[in-house]
Design a protein around this nucleic acid. Structure first.
Length: 319
DNA sequence: TCTGGGGTCCTAGGACCC
DNA sequence: TCTGGGGTCCTAGGACCC
């Protein structure tokens, strides 16, 4: 990403290892630009990569995938450029699964109507597709024709949610063990929020039973937070409402959403909240310095009794 | 094709308000 | 008190992506 940023400001990162680049301003042909980028990454970062070029993000993305799949002398360093005007022609022979956004469910539905290739989609009327797929139909048809005017956006997209989850080797039906996992997940999520300078107003849990059925439950709090403890308290109460004693759990997760930028509202925190922030900072500092050592809250406040209760300890130290 | 651990976006329905 | 329309906020789940 650094290398790309050095090349042009018009870089839109879409995942850890993929980005769109608008090269309209670079006075070279696309093939040359792509090969130069590829060579730069190979030489300086020592990684292979594939590039696709087209007049739109959608077609460039699909071209990258198609190039990646073709095994030739360059593999795994593909470059595939789709010339402007040739988009429908390029897309027509591809299976509908090649369309970005068409997964197993949509392709199954489309195939039932005899739509197997993007070319089939091109031939269908907008009306027929609309009655079959709703508002997604016309959109899909435009995409199948290679029409996509979404610009390359260099602004980094703000995170919409922060979560952490884990799948167990063996299903767990023990309340204390599940609580302990919920706590450590809450701590990781809290830490991620703090590192990103974010606060969250909604806390969610995710539970997967042994039959793979997965449920989610969430609550929205009156105030946003980035502290481990309130996240854990919310997560635990959601868990208690959703879980029947002894039910084996395969996966458990804690998530936060409804995010806001944290910093500037510090002044709004009450005294006690500020104290909690200082405790939190001290804990973060300890965890930083002692790395693998498990530090966690030793006590938690019980809403039922209004008292501070000891937390069940699994491993490690209590502070 | 599945698993695992992140994510995003969309839809539908309920509660509530004007 | 009821009706209607519109809007917001929230929850739950599904489809999809890397």
């Amino acid at each position: 990403m650094e290398k790309l940023d050095g090349l042009t400001p018009y870089v839109e990162q879409i995942s850890i290892d993929e980005a769109f680049i608008d090269v309209s301003d670079i006075p070279k042909d696309s093939e040359t630009i792509a090969r130069e980028i590829q060579m730069m990454i190979r030489e300086e970062v020592r990684l292979p990569c594939s590039l696709g070029g087209a007049s739109s993000k959608l077609v460039a993305k699909i071209a990258t995938n198609v190039g990646k799949d073709s095994v030739d002398a360059f593999w795994p360093n593909a470059v595939l450029i789709v010339p402007a005007g040739k988009e429908p022609e390029f897309l027509a022979p591809l299976p509908i699964r090649a369309m970005w956004g068409v997964g197993p469910k949509s392709s199954e539905r489309l195939e039932k109507s005899g739509i197997r290739k993007l070319g089939d989609l091109q031939k269908w009327s907008v009306e027929a597709l609309e009655s079959k797929l709703g508002s997604y139909g016309p959109q899909l048809k435009r995409f199948a024709m290679g029409i996509d005017d979404r610009p390359v956006s260099a602004e980094d997209r703000e995170a919409k949610s922060v979560s952490n989850e884990t799948t167990f080797d063996e299903d767990i039906g023990d309340r204390d063990k599940l609580h302990a996992v919920l706590l450590s997940l809450s701590q990781r999520v809290g830490r991620s929020l703090r590192d990103a300078g974010l606060v969250a107003r909604t806390v969610a849990i995710k539970l997967r039973w042994s039959d793979f059925k997965t449920i989610t439950r969430r609550v929205t709090m009156p105030d946003a937070t980035d502290l481990d403890q309130p996240i854990y308290v919310s997560a635990k109460s959601l868990f208690e409402k959703a879980w029947k004693e002894g039910t084996p759990v395969r996966l458990i997760g804690v998530g936060t959403s409804n995010l806001e930028t944290g910093g500037e509202q510090l002044s709004l925190f009450s005294q006690s909240d500020d104290k909690e922030h200082r405790v939190q900072e001290a804990l973060d500092d300890l965890r930083d310095r002692f790395g693998s050592m498990k530090t966690r809250w030793g006590r938690e406040h019980s809403h039922e009794t209004g008292r501070w209760m000891d937390v069940e300890e699994e491993e490690g130290e209590v502070f």
